[in-house]
Write a protein that binds this DNA or RNA. Structure first.
Lengths: 247, 247
DNA sequence: AATACCGGTTGACATGGATCAAGCGAACGC
DNA sequence: GCGTTCGCTTGATCCATGTCAACCGGTATT
């Protein structure tokens, strides 16, 4: 293999013309609420799509930030690394969600974004997004909402990590995934996990064995059917009840 | 006491003319990086200051959102409540920091903001901030950075809650406070905690007894001197070492 | 001044989840 | 097609933190 730039060597460089205006995710993603004319102006900005293979990085902590990314298809995780080697998954992202917002602050990415399956992303050069959102009020406001939503989401995770026990965390996790699959038109009751038990554990502040045991327990109690990464939710209310358990 | 609006009855309504342009926090707060002329335009927007007494709410979860708040002086906590009664402190905020960013997402506040000492805040009507930041590029960009910084901060807390043990969490907490006091011109080595052990515990995902024991342990080991809410840091490196403990 | 209350500290004990270890099936490389 | 590896499951044991309880000092209440 010829030597290539270490930053880009592991991402596929195939670039495809793309357009928000005919993207079926536009109601979930950045274009939400824009008029047709405004959409076309956004198209000019979001001009490239890129494929990222499973296991490859979209970006790495420390790299300079200059764009945010919208997931066109696929599945990602983000994680942060501590100096001493510990790391933690900070989120799992799916189609229509944005990646890279954390980089605006320092103008460098502060986490790693890794594809958990072959994926496609749209690059949105950030300074051009700022320019355009100075002109399109709706875009500006929606972008602010998206950033704010990320903050609210993080508070939810803090709550989960700070106050919930293992089974509550996993129930919350499954219900959240289910809900997000639903709003993308997939089954709410049956899906494949894209991540390992270890990654789930890292996200939930648990060890992989604990995650595995909780899955088994949910199965014994008839809430779900698990077979490796294949999950079927048999009793949504059972899972919900697990969460309000404590007084 | 006469019956008053339940939303406002517990906040002091004294309103004071204020100006970012002569605020000594302008390098920490929203005005960062603005020119004199731009500063004056921000002054028009941030026209009111309000006093909040210790223990009073600045806002409550569920209330409609229409402004963000800059802390002029004082100290706040924010917390979220789960339906089942559990709650968690999501942050402690001090002078120069912004409150209310979580409300942009749903146009309702999603947490409670409570003053931990008598405080003064500046109200910034959000739609006017958006207008102005469409005109002032620097303001727009800085505001985006502030929101992004909040996301990065939350990731740090998630890391803390997900991977650290009790003493590491408390050490990280003290070092973070110390650093924030320092950048406000206060002693980095000596300060008064504004919050109770229980509030610290809630923030760090620990019980108050655990927090208390960790304080005592730090004292035994000579890292700090504690007397109730009065903290002196005797050995910063000792605290830092506690955090990189694990491989 | 007496009393109640609140926040903090400390001790004894319980327990949820981590750790260590073994084994198993599916996927993958050769 | 076979062996190796990886992700997952399950069991046994351990330990950090939670839980329960007693006590103390400072502050607010009457």
């Amino acid at each position: 293999m010829p030597h290539t730039n270490p930053v880009t060597q592991d991402v596929s460089l195939s670039v495809i013309k793309t357009a928000c205006s005919n993207c079926n995710l536009r109601e979930l993603c950045l274009p939400f609420g824009l008029s047709l004319e405004e959409l076309e102006r956004l198209d000019d900005l979001v001009s490239t799509r890129r494929r990222i293979k499973r296991g490859d990085h979209l970006y790495r902590a420390g790299e300079p930030f200059d764009a945010i990314y919208a997931i066109r298809s696929g599945f990602f995780k983000t994680d942060v690394l501590l100096e001493d080697g510990r790391d933690q998954v900070t989120g799992f992202q799916m189609a229509g969600e944005l990646l890279g917002l954390d980089g605006i602050s320092t103008e460098h990415h502060t986490c790693n974004a890794i594809a958990l399956e072959d994926s496609e992303i749209c690059s949105i050069p950030f300074s051009r997004l700022e320019s355009l959102s100075r002109e399109i009020h709706t875009l500006q406001h929606h972008f602010h909402k998206v950033m704010s939503r990320e903050i609210v989401r993080d508070h939810g995770v803090m709550m989960l990590l700070g106050t919930m026990r293992a089974e509550e965390r996993l129930a919350a996790f499954l219900l959240n995934l289910s809900q997000r699959f639903t709003s993308r038109g997939f089954s709410h009751a049956e899906f494949y996990l894209r991540m390992t038990r270890e990654e789930i554990g890292s996200y939930l502040g648990l060890k992989l064995e604990t995650v595995s045991r909780a899955f088994s327990r949910f199965q014994e109690e008839g809430h779900i059917a698990v077979q490796q990464k294949h999950i079927r939710i048999l009793n949504v209310n059972g899972l919900k009840a697990l969460m309000n358990h404590r007084a």
